[in-house]
Design a protein around this nucleic acid. Structure first.
Lengths: 199, 199, 199, 199
DNA sequence: TATGAATGAGCCTTCATTCAT
DNA sequence: GATGAATGAAGGCTCATTCAT
């Protein structure tokens, strides 16, 4: 008697998830071209062939991973928009950003690899651009809301800083004072400080 | 008549340089693993075999390229130190940074690839860390010199912003307002503005 | 309530038949090596695994298909032998041959593939040789019966022509004048014509 | 010092030829899908990788082989057209055909495999059709020239017979009376016999 | 110095077959 | 009887590297 379709679904979901997680980590670490399907399969504890029961190509794996990121990104905006107070929005934004650097490190690295090598996944670039545009718009609105001048340029510099921080952190995780910087920014962009500056 | 040893030396240097330049461009574009020696050789107009007359492996090529960058970086510090006035230093620093993004785009991309994938070149990481440490120290000193508070953290955020800007620029060169941002930062960190803020 | 063994038997036979028909078509179209078990199973509307419940290997499938052909071939001889008049036999033979080309195209193609690539199914070759020997003997007898000289060689040429026609037809089904050729041969080898020539 | 370009050319030609010959034999024996590049390389005494220095894909190999056949076919027509006497033409045609079966057995088998599986090489089919059309036209003209009635249909049957003979021969080379059949046909279609029949 | 033929390891992918359910 | 997840060998192809010249 065959497995019930429910059983199969569970097996598939579990295995698929394991492949995706392993792949994300390895792609992040060694890049797309630097990661082999053998490696992914071995690390995920399955046979090489099985990978192709779940994804029709190595490229599809990276695409699915990226799609998952886009979902995440979408959620991020929803979270931010839960706040109506611009000061709270700003705080949430900074917190999310630092959290993402720390807790979704692999995805973060992978995203930047994809930015640097758009050949790997053509669509990633345009979707990434779209994501950053929305992000910067959001920041700009918030900046305007809290009275920061030159909000457009400042938002760009601010966004760049957040990602630059991610980069520095990736370079030297053990020693980078991520918490300290986070605290610094949270204070600098707190209601209290901002009102002091722009009163 | 055989070539004089002087001629040979010149030929060697010219060929070596061409290989390095080609490799840098291709590594930047397609990544280390995404670039083949054949491609480099063909693009450089030489035979595959000859490449191994100049470099003992593909890895060595990237190492030499990185070494050249380090030399460049060294020069950068010298340039900055030509100025004694911290305001001038700061301006020079911003200008250099934006210039580098624009005019050494390939090297810039390659560097970030190496940061994201330290496996490709083990040594790069530590040297990169060292470079950034010096850089951030320099900025910190300058920041202190111009009276910025929390100079250590601010320097880190500032440095991160400069690199983040580079990243955004790479992602969307056609549309990124690099000049505008540059102008914005030059103004924001100009003597006039800084003295206004910190008077 | 479990199925009765009679029901099971019927299911088995139906499924087996569907597998064989699907396989024959696909083998004919894409060759033995060019056809996968997955493809056969999918096309037959069953699971991959079930195929192995009916046949112990891909090779066995082609063997069973070929065995069925041999049965068919045996029937062919019986049909021919229903006629006692050699002229009628000859007509029946030509008609059968053309019918087979047209209505058992897949089997026809498969047979010729097996002739060209005996490695796929070792036994096919000897059985095919046997079949053709009997066929040519039959033709030879008929030719003798209608007074054709050099019956042995003529039979071989005639048999070859019939198969050659099949080949040409397969090459260019839309344009090949199969009906016209059939008519031509039926006339050429009709009692009337043969008696005219050999009177 | 590098090899002279003449030396390289010779090496390339020799190796390429060896690959093509090996491939033709193996394709003929086991079919396109049943032959691996490894096998070809091993049989040709070279490494797998080197094959790709000469052909960019397995498909290209079969295409080049087929192109060589087309050249041969072209030559065939030239040879036939050297004769002006239709009787001589007919004799030459029969002789060439039997020679080809015997001495270009591999190519013969490969051609028929390609006819049976047009998927392998799309172009083969149309070119083969063209070749056979020309061939049958040629035969038809000759048949008309020697006074055979229903020349169009007879030419088709005759051509089919020649290929059918090839098929039979391939099936059972040791026992097939190729020479005898050849002699039979040469006599049957000799000037003497034809004039006897159609006088 | 320079070439490009040659190698062999390794990559992505397919597929016949097995097996737990 | 039936399913489809899983395996492992093999296939097509690429590529860093070597070597004869």
């Amino acid at each position: 008697m065959p497995r019930s379709s429910e059983q199969n679904k569970q097996i598939r979901e579990k295995t698929k998830k394991r492949i995706l997680e392993t792949a994300r980590t390895l792609f992040a670490k060694n890049g797309f071209h630097g990661t082999s399907i053998s490696e992914i399969a071995k690390e995920a504890g399955i046979s090489k062939g099985l990978t192709y029961n779940y994804f029709k190509s190595k490229t599809e794996i990276v695409e699915v991973i990226f799609d998952e990121f886009l979902l995440d990104a979408h959620n991020f905006f929803e979270v931010i928009n839960n706040y109506s107070d611009p000061y709270e929005k700003l705080t949430a934004l900074i917190e999310s950003s630092f959290d993402y650097i720390e807790y979704a490190e692999d995805q973060w690295k992978l995203n930047f690899s994809l930015i640097l090598q758009p050949q790997v996944m053509k669509l990633a670039r345009s979707q990434m651009i779209k994501f950053y545009d929305e992000m910067l718009n959001e920041i700009e609105k918030v900046f305007k809301g809290v009275g920061i001048k030159n909000a457009a340029s400042e938002a760009r510099v601010f966004g760049a800083a957040l990602d630059g921080i991610g980069m520095y952190y990736m370079m030297n995780k053990e020693n980078y004072p991520l918490k300290k910087i986070k605290k610094h920014l949270l204070k600098k962009y707190s209601k209290e400080e901002l009102q002091k500056t722009f009163r």
